[in-house]
């Protein structure tokens, strides 16, 4: 399978001496939906900046569909579409102008550009706003406009840097649906996000960057299988005065109608309910306390920090 993106020993040292990337290796296969996770300042945006030519690399190689950016950056760039973290279009232009201009920078003639702009603006619910000044668009609309702009030259690799940050849940879900459809049509997608449920539900493979190093790079399924315990929150039908004696799992009475239970994977959920039934406790609803990937992510970041302290 062709690698949509292949990064080898990529290093970035900024002029102030900050080593943002410490020789990372990363490979994303064509057609993949790939999550790039990490804390703020971990090096995700620097990596994306290098791939998209907004940041100069210090050393290492980057290949986009086997095209080395040092050999033929214009060709490599033509394969990529970028949706950046921050708004980066002229707020005095209209959505139509922004998308049309972007097509122009890729050498697409105005007739084709207009057709594509119309298609993507309609698909992303921006057609009615096409002639409005972009400054007047809502935050969600601005983000969708950047997606339309990134797609106008039909990139083979779409990089989304926190595309749903600050977007309400309804629009976020419609954006997920849209991005998934683009992926199903064959576009490789790299997503960075702070919403880990987004990564868990959308992405097939995950890499975690911490302090300039890739500390994990595997499939989402494999990563989730490593989760050994889960915490569930139970909303009770009737108030509970005191926590009964349970013999399996760690239980906690959060308030009179909310219970929390921490169980290992082997214990299973059935055991919880048999204990609840024995104590005549009726449950109204149940949910995970935190997203599973989020739990793993935090564990990994913590253990990475512990390892660093040991070395020091």
């Amino acid at each position: 399978m062709t690698a949509a993106l292949k990064i080898e020993n990529l290093e970035k040292v900024y002029s102030n001496g900050l080593r943002a990337l410490k020789g990372i290796d990363l490979e994303v296969n064509e057609g993949d939906f790939f999550a790039l996770l990490g804390k703020n300042g971990a090096g995700k945006s620097t990596a994306i900046g290098i791939i998209s030519s907004l940041v100069n690399k210090t050393s290492g190689t980057v290949k986009i569909f086997n095209v080395d950016i040092d050999q033929n950056f214009p060709l490599a760039k033509s394969y990529i579409g970028i949706v950046p973290q921050e708004i980066n279009f002229s707020v005095f232009e209209t959505p139509m102008q922004i998308v049309m201009n972007q097509a122009g920078y890729y050498g697409i003639n105005s007739q084709i550009a207009r057709e594509r702009a119309q298609r993507y603006l309609k698909q992303l619910g921006l057609w009615e706003k096409r002639n409005d000044i972009s400054r007047e668009l809502s935050g969600g609309m601005k983000r969708r406009l950047m997606i339309a702009r990134a797609l106008v030259h039909r990139p083979r690799l779409l990089i989304l840097d926190e595309p749903t940050a600050g977007v309400d849940i309804e629009i976020r879900r419609s954006m997920w649906e849209f991005i998934s459809r683009i992926n199903r049509q064959g576009t490789t997608i790299i997503l960075t996000t702070h919403y880990l449920e987004e990564a868990e539900s959308l992405c097939r493979n995950v890499a975690i960057i911490d302090d300039g190093n890739v500390i994990e790079n595997t499939s989402t399924r494999e990563l989730l299988s490593r989760l050994q315990r889960e915490i569930y929150v139970l909303d009770l039908q009737q108030p509970l005065a005191k926590l009964p004696e349970f013999n399996r799992g760690k239980w906690k009475l959060v308030d009179s109608t909310t219970l929390e239970v921490d169980i290992s994977k082997e214990q299973g959920i059935n055991g919880i309910f048999s204990q609840l039934n024995d104590n005549l406790i009726r449950v109204q609803s149940m949910r995970n306390k935190s997203n599973r990937l989020e739990q793993l992510f935090l564990d990994m970041i913590d253990s990475s920090a512990d390892r660093k302290e040991e070395v020091l």
């Binding site: 950046p84 708004i87 279009f89 890729y106």
Partner: peptide, 18 residues
């Protein structure tokens, strides 16, 4: 300078325009 300030210069930078 405005393009730099608003970061809209990135629209051209990420494209293959020489």
């Amino acid at each position: 300078f405005s393009s730099k300030f608003q970061r809209s210069i990135e629209e051209i930078q990420v494209s293959p325009t020489p």
